[in-house]
Design a protein around this nucleic acid. Sequence first.
DNA 1: ATTTACCTGGACGTACACGTAAGAGTTTTG
DNA 2: CAAAACTCTTACGTGTACGTCCAGGTAAAT
Lengths: 155, 155
Amino acid sequence: MAEEREGAYLQIGEVAERTGVTQRTLRFYEEKGLLKPPTRMEGGFRLYSEEDVRRVLRIRRLRDLLGFTLAEIKEMVEADEVKMQLRAEYRKDADAEEKRRQIQRAKEVTEKQLALVRRKMEQLAELQRSLEEKIATYDGWLGELDRYIASRAGR
Amino acid sequence: MAEEREGAYLQIGEVAERTGVTQRTLRFYEEKGLLKPPTRMEGGFRLYSEEDVRRVLRIRRLRDLLGFTLAEIKEMVEADEVKMQLRAEYRKDADAEEKRRQIQRAKEVTEKQLALVRRKMEQLAELQRSLEEKIATYDGWLGELDRYIASRAGR
DNA sequence: ATTTACCTGGACGTACACGTAAGAGTTTTG
DNA sequence: CAAAACTCTTACGTGTACGTCCAGGTAAAT
């Protein structure tokens, strides 16, 4: 097996294990632009960082639990890239007006996502309420039935 | 064109229009058991009820906004069927123990759905929080930038 | 009665998100 | 250094959720 914890760089197999996705999925995400091409060994093996692992986990959460498509997730990931980019050159102060426009754009994208998330939460809350109501109905029925069964047995 | 509002029975075209899905999708849902086979005219044309329309809308909400798969939605719809069924013969009292088991089962299914919904809501809340934080960061940057730009203009 | 709009089942096509297999190369281990 | 374990690219396959097209039957309006 591969050496353990070599400087914090992980091969695709270990990333797959840690994130619970297959190697195919990792290559697929790279192909689709969801993961930036990782560094490689001389032989061509991919070397991932812990940051990459976190990103994969985030992608899966957005997909599995929240039902976003990979296209939507890609947008979000790209918005993150912009943020990192801006943060990195924040001090370098190249053309303040241009930077302002970029930030404004990134903010608008984020606000759209937020609006979407809020809509989803409202819908989920409604669904939650109706499910709780349903369970209450079942409990009521069960109680009645149990009383009925008990009364029959008692006779 | 077809007659307007004939006794509250709708043809597939009108249901499609009202629900925003295609006729193909309606037939597909029927094929997959998400919609019970509707009544037909002598000629074979499907006749839907308002109840059917509501069900379609519910299916779409579960799919589009909450990201459930049709298989999951089918389970939910079937649980509803059971509930309707039970409600209908609630008074008829045939075998109380058997009915108890059915209700218990339906309740368990509903509880699983509820647990899933709660997990999704937690994740969404977390995402919401991080998005709000991101926007705050952008706002901070914008404020700084604007002050900088103003100070430059003032000089 | 005929046009016109609508519907039917069946079959093939498609976009998304990967799965799986093949054959060859690379790295690690004994 | 050779076997074992891992990874590489390429390419075709799969399940889901429909879209699209077809030939032909049905319904409503003129």
